[in-house]
């Protein structure tokens, strides 16, 4: 029974079987295991409890935990499906799956829509878009007058808001994205295609053989 020693690995709360996660996402079992290596690093960077707290998410994204960023907050909020203030491993994998190069384009469109629907009303409203443009300008060196911002919003809504009710619904959003696929550029992470080579140490922790034994 030399090769059948059981690994007494203790997994933290929120850990889910890679086989189950692979079945529900665009990732293979090996890729889910490689993502677990990444997850462990991020989730132990400040509070070592196997969960990603917002401060750890910001630290991983910006290498600076003090940086306030509206968009990072929104992404964290969407990853945190249980809305309990932390990202568990399963939530991490399921959310990242949307960013996989082979994930359905429609899933990416839906995710981006939720991201930009700041107040979760089911519409992207003009005020929300203005808030996001202002937030983008404040994080960059770009400076635009309020007049120019309003001109940009006018142009955007003239094109996107085909029903002319001052807000963008999901169908209008889909139409806009189809005309401008570059708007979805951030929704695909090429890194996810070769995650097993980025985090090769997953091999040493792999449970795949055990699962097949």
């Amino acid at each position: 029974m030399g090769c059948f020693h059981s690994k007494q690995v203790k997994f933290p709360q929120g850990y889910e079987d890679p086989n189950v996660l692979a079945g529900e996402t665009s990732f293979s079992v090996s890729e889910v295991e490689a993502l677990y290596e990444l997850f462990k690093k991020i989730s132990s960077s400040v509070i070592n409890d196997g969960l990603i707290h917002k401060v750890e998410f910001q630290l991983a994204l910006f290498k600076n935990s003090k940086k306030e960023n509206l968009f990072a907050d929104r992404v964290f909020d969407l990853f945190d499906k249980k809305q309990n203030g932390v990202i568990e491993f399963g939530e991490f994998v399921r959310s990242l799956s949307v960013f996989h190069p082979s994930a359905p384009f429609n899933d990416k469109i839906e995710f981006a829509f939720k991201l930009y629907d700041l107040r979760k009303t089911g519409f992207i409203e003009r005020e929300e878009v203005k808030e996001m443009v202002v937030a983008l300008l404040s994080e960059s060196d770009m400076k635009l007058s309020d007049e120019v911002i309003e001109t940009i919003l006018d142009k955007t809504f003239r094109e996107a808001d085909t029903k002319q009710d001052g807000k963008i619904d999901k169908d209008e959003w889909k139409d806009l994205v189809e005309r401008h696929p570059s708007l979805m550029k951030n929704m695909t992470l090429p890194y996810l295609k070769d995650i097993t080579t980025t985090f090769p140490s997953f091999v040493f922790h792999s449970e795949v053989e055990d699962a097949n034994a």
Binding site: L38, A60, L61, V129, A135, I152, T156, L183, I195
Partner: peptide
């Protein structure tokens, strides 16, 4: 002549907060 203004979402997509590739630089 003034250049045509960008689409607001093109501007927004420039945010670093929307570029999750930073997560994958967490190696070590």
């Amino acid at each position: 002549s003034k250049p045509a203004p960008m689409n607001a979402f093109e501007l927004i997509s420039l945010s670093r907060g929307l570029n999750l590739s930073g997560l994958f630089e967490t190696r070590g």
